[in-house]
Amino acid sequence: MVNYRTAEYIDWCPSCGDFGIVSSETMALADLGIDRSKAVVVSGIGCSSKIPHYINVSGVHTMHGRAIPFASGIKLVNPDLKVIVNSGDGDLLGIGVGHLVSAGRRNLDITILLHNNGVYGLTKGQASPTLHRGLQTKSLPTKNINDSLDPLAIALTAGYTFVARAYAYDAMFTKEIIKKAIMHKGTSLVDILQPCPTYNNINTKEWYEKRIYKLDEDYEVKAPEEASERMSKALIKSFEWGDRIPIGIFYENNFIPEYGQRIAEHSPAYFSDYPAKQVIEQNGKSTTDISRLLEKLGV
């Protein structure tokens, strides 16, 4: 029996939503039987981004907002790896929002788990890009002056081919969503709502649990021509936020080629001989032959 949890001391606050996410994620890895050395969890900076240290697969704890580029580099040179990004709402929708949007254009086969609690917990509670305008969580000197970003709407319009929302305290449901996200061939985003018991005294466990409800299973694009209609419906659904908040899978489209497949169109050997597999030296000598390139430059 593989243990997907490390023995590292966890310094999250008691009842932090991150506990639910680390449980769901490790259960998902266990259910899928993923080889520990073939999975990499990549994070940014923040409370949530400490998660690689608590998951017993390879972990890369990067810079604020930059988990997606690092994860992309790893996946691009070794498509056999399962690469999962765990990052906060400040990471992915604030400082790193450009990467979040651009990832949709590539549709690389990585999974992005967004820890969404509306605040910058590690720096003591400033408003994050997902906190709604007019709210004043307990560290804010004044009401939040900015409108909020909707991660699902951004993902849908940016080109993500799997878009879902989960709730951190419903660990079994979140686990099932994460499993589907990992198995999806393409970029998947799971927006995971989580209370921050220390700094977000508005969007609490009680607040969420009165509102959330589960979507039905009708989310998959069945034919390319119905993609835009499906996406429009998912987009409208993503705007539902108030007395009722939907969780579940909003959209999945398996007709868009994944980035590796796009590479293989011009480099057919990519999946069988990707860069991490290549033999670039033998006995200290380069195995690469540049003579054809030099011939072209001959004068």
């Binding site: 810079m63 580029p69 690092f70 580099g73 480099s267």
Partner: peptide
């Protein structure tokens, strides 16, 4: 053998991807 060349959204992404590829054992 195929070399992977990626045009990124900005230079932060460019260096991040290159470092990530290096972690996976590739000259990047």
């Amino acid at each position: 053998r195929p070399v992977v060349v990626v045009q990124t959204e900005d230079e932060i992404s460019a260096i991040g991807m290159a470092i990530g590829a290096g972690l996976a054992g590739v000259r990047s």
